[in-house]
């Protein structure tokens, strides 16, 4: 063998090793499932399901909401959205907010409550954080505003079942290796952050619809 042949053989071996290693290790996030029906928005038999992982206290998540809803409008009869809680550990009020949204969901108002949490985020989770602020009265006020049964809302918000559901979602996000919030999974594609959701989201949804 000439040096040239040997070099080519070695390079081919390296490239093959790389390709095989990546193919074996490739991690396609297994997202589907795990969310109760009230966190599903859109047709039950949707062709494309957007799995959103958000934290109610995250400003970028609030910013992305309009763009995520716009993705649904691309084909309202064929695209659905599923919400998954991904409360970040540095956000002290993210878990209580997620529990409040779950309690609203148990009365059929998850999406309306989530919208209130995002649009009024600065009231119950101001930046810079105000440790003295008790966000619970605000959560109860939002429930009243939506006409929810307050006693049932409070009981559900404090119930171990609600806590478990939020924790299950957080564990799910950890298993996926969630890179940031918000993250939206569309089949085996991923949109990370508000900017990608706005810029790449429509193209990814169209790609998923065309498959």
């Amino acid at each position: 063998m000439t040096p040239r042949t040997r070099r080519a053989a070695a390079a081919a071996g390296l490239l093959t090793t790389m390709a095989v290693a990546v193919a074996i290790g490739r991690q396609t996030p297994a997202v589907a499932g795990g969310a109760p029906p009230y966190r599903w928005l859109g047709p039950a038999a949707a062709k494309v399901v957007l799995d959103e992982f958000s934290d109610f206290e995250c400003p970028k998540c609030a910013q992305a909401q309009a763009d995520i809803k716009a993705l649904l409008k691309a084909a309202p009869d064929r695209v659905a959205l599923v919400f998954h809680h991904a409360p970040l550990r540095q956000h002290a009020r993210a878990v209580p907010a997620a529990r409040a949204a779950e309690a609203a969901g148990l009365q059929g108002k998850f999406w309306e409550y989530a919208e209130l949490l995002f649009t009024r985020q600065k009231d119950w989770a101001p930046h810079p954080p105000n440790p003295a602020l008790d966000s619970r009265p605000l959560f109860l006020a939002y429930a009243r505003e939506l006409g929810l049964d307050e006693a049932r809302f409070t009981a559900d918000m404090d119930s171990p079942l609600t806590a478990e559901r939020v924790q299950q979602d957080r564990d799910h996000a950890d298993r996926l290796g969630l890179p940031a919030t918000p993250t939206v999974y569309i089949k085996d594609r991923t949109l990370v952050g508000a900017n990608q959701i706005a810029s790449l989201g429509p193209r990814f949804v169209q790609w998923a619809l065309d498959q």
Partner: peptide, 17 residues
């Protein structure tokens, strides 16, 4: 390179952003 190549490219793109 490997830990980035096995994950969706959009994750690394968000970090680059």
């Amino acid at each position: 390179g490997y830990v980035k190549a096995i994950r969706p490219a959009e994750e690394f793109a968000a970090l680059l952003a």
